[in-house]
Amino acid sequence: MPDGAAPILDVNNLKTIFRTRDGEVHAVNSVSFDVGPGELLGVVGESGSGKSVTMMSLMGLLPSPPAEIVSGEILYQGSDVRKMSEAQLRDLRGGDVGFVFQDPMTSLNPVFTVGYQLVEPLQIHMGLSKKAARARAAELLDLVGIPDARKRLSDYPHQFSGGMRQRVMIAIALACDPKLLIADEPTTALDVTIQAQIIELVRDLRQQLGMAIVWITHDLGVVAGIADRVMVMYGGQIVEHAPVGELFANPQHPYTRALLETVPRVDGTRDARLRSIQGQPPSLAAHPASCPFAARCGHVFDRCLVENPERRDVGARHDVACFWDARTREPYNG
């Protein structure tokens, strides 16, 4: 992203909670980030770290109740999404902002043809006639690499393989030339070879169409391959944020460092055991007055247990939420 360009999406202090019978679950705690035009932001974290919930809250896709955005600001091209009417929000969804979800097997409606499901957003957002929309739908299927596109429009989702269905989902998301594509673990449910194809496809499409992408994943390898910037989430918070090269070269947060150690390396020594992160992800039942990672952290000290660290800058566009300084290997004084 060119420095200084206005971000397409700017999120400040977003807090999303789920009101359940057992009390409030703070799924997203004061999350702030931005996405520039044409940029690819990777969001990494384990299951339950709040990465999907964060992105789903942005466009009001969480079921409410139980989910509720309690505070924060979501600016899409400068206008606050939270203050938008339902109709304005609908115009964004599927129009300016496209979504791809995790499980292509269940994300498409089984009783409608792929063509029908592709034509829907085209008619709503672009006001195309049925015929024009169908022609455009065929183009889109062709764009995402589905052979014999025109004929396949009248097929049902169950007649496509998993990878092909995910291509259809991508075609739906891209239908109305979105400026922002939110991809929620789009490759998690797929075979590794298909994963590679989908990643390659998104990389190509991004070059052709130039939209910004938020790519949610728990696979660091995927992020390393395609992202410009990476955001690491843990316990509903952003614990580290850096350009992709910087993050892999110079990880600061103990959690990021531990995550990197869990990735097998082709060039590593054979006898080195693959590390795992001990312990369980934190329960999000209450807003913590301590670092959420404290219980699993190897560098934990007394301050971590009584205070939740704020994000602090450690380099150019690189910040970390930790009291421990990875460079000096000592508690940070500030």
């Binding site: 599927g94 496209g98 269940t106 409608f112």
Partner: peptide
């Protein structure tokens, strides 16, 4: 509860269309 309902909403469909086209057709089976 199904994922395709979220997809329908993510496409920017009106709530009525989500309910009466996507969900109802499946529920009628």
């Amino acid at each position: 509860q199904q994922d395709y309902v979220r997809t329908a909403r993510a496409k920017g469909l009106r709530e009525r269309a989500v309910l009466l086209i996507h969900v109802l057709r499946n529920s009628m089976i």
